[in-house]
């Protein structure tokens, strides 16, 4: 069972929402989960409808149910993580400030290749491994709202890159330690996608990259699925054979422009073309979605589906998504 869940996905697929729902879903039966974000976007705060998160682990939600656990959240800030790290390992409080003044901290967290990513993943791994006084894990699971699919392998694998750059020394050692966690079965990288061509393509490519880098792939979360109401065949029937009947049915259901009899049916008939146009677009999308579904099925990975919430995801919607995830078995 994984304890570090890294959630990635193409931009616009809802990975922050899915990460939040997953953290909630994993927090049942008294478990504690930590939800971390690494991109400084304050996406978690928006999803949970709270004020901006500080660099501090704080409880932001209680999981539903009698023995619901808690979701804690942390917005990891690379600069603060570096200063903490320096303090922790080198007792460098004052020197840290001097380094900052000189631009060295800025250099390390924004310019130096890979260092930023080591700091971000390092902090998440630290939370995964942290134990309390009685030797139990402080968090039962850590969920990371990670960078998008296009950058995820480089982000997670950057420790390898740093390890190659710094062949010895503390950065090297730190990177190696982080990498050991990320490549272990303790970690699972999940990709969020929509049933659209580009996100699915990126998912397929992303999984190949993750596998090539030896990073453990978890599951695919198909987000914002919509029910199939009518397919191409049915729309064809509606457009061709059944038009008259549909006009009558509409009129009968009261959509007749206040007219009676044949005039009402005629009025209803005027609705059919625009409705059919919408139905054709829907059917075309259904066809595309079926093809994309088949493509994802070919990946041979566990998949999870989350329905589109028509009114957008508010807090209640988030709990609903968490419930839906839980119903689909362990992730």
């Amino acid at each position: 069972m994984s304890r570090l869940h890294v959630v990635s996905g193409k931009g616009g697929t809802g990975k922050t929402t899915v990460a939040a729902a997953l953290a909630l879903a994993l927090a049942t039966e008294g478990r504690r989960t930590l939800l971390v974000e690494v991109e400084g976007r304050q996406g978690i705060a928006q999803v949970f409808e709270t004020e901006a998160l500080p660099y501090e682990e704080r409880k932001i939600a209680v999981a539903p149910g009698p023995d619901g656990g808690g979701v804690y959240a942390l917005a990891i800030d690379a600069e603060r993580a570096l200063l903490d790290y320096l303090q922790m390992f080198y007792k460098l409080g004052g020197a840290g400030r001097a380094l900052k003044k000189l631009g060295a901290i800025d250099f390390a967290t924004t310019i130096a290749p890979g260092l930023r990513d080591v700091l971000l993943t390092g902090k998440a791994c630290e939370a995964v491994r942290r134990k309390d006084k009685r030797g139990r894990f402080v968090y039962d699971a850590v969920v990371m709202d990670a960078p998008p699919t296009g950058r995820i392998t480089r982000f997670l694998n950057v420790n390898d890159e740093v390890a190659g750059l710094a062949k010895i020394g503390p950065i090297h050692n730190q990177a190696q330690a982080v990498m050991r966690v990320l490549k272990s079965p303790e970690t699972a990288v999940h990709l969020v996608t929509l049933l659209e061509e580009m996100p699915v393509q990126e998912t397929v490519d992303g999984i190949a990259e993750l596998r090539a880098a030896g990073l453990p792939v978890g599951g695919v979360v198909i987000n914002m699925t919509r029910p199939e109401v009518l397919d191409t065949g049915e729309v064809d029937i509606a457009a061709n054979g059944a038009r008259r009947g549909i006009a009558e049915a509409l009129a009968e259901a009261g959509l007749r422009g206040g007219r009676r009899g044949a005039a009402g049916v005629k009025w209803a008939d005027g609705l059919i073309d625009p409705l059919l146009e919408e139905a054709r677009e829907h059917a075309q999308r259904v066809d595309l979605e079926r093809a994309e579904h088949a493509e994802l099925a070919g990946l041979d990975l566990p998949t999870y589906e989350l329905e589109l919430l028509p009114e957008g995801v508010d807090l209640a919607g988030l709990y609903r998504l968490a419930r839906d995830l839980r119903k689909q078995g362990p992730i």
Binding site: A249, L250, L275, A279
Partner: peptide, 25 residues
């Protein structure tokens, strides 16, 4: 086997309602 006109009409209306929700949002 063959959707009735009423069911097709209902399908069209449901899709339209979905579309109108999207529009409003």
């Amino acid at each position: 086997d063959t959707p009735s006109a009423a069911r097709l009409a209902a399908g069209l209306l449901r899709l339209h309602a979905e579309r109108m929700h999207v529009l409003a949002r």
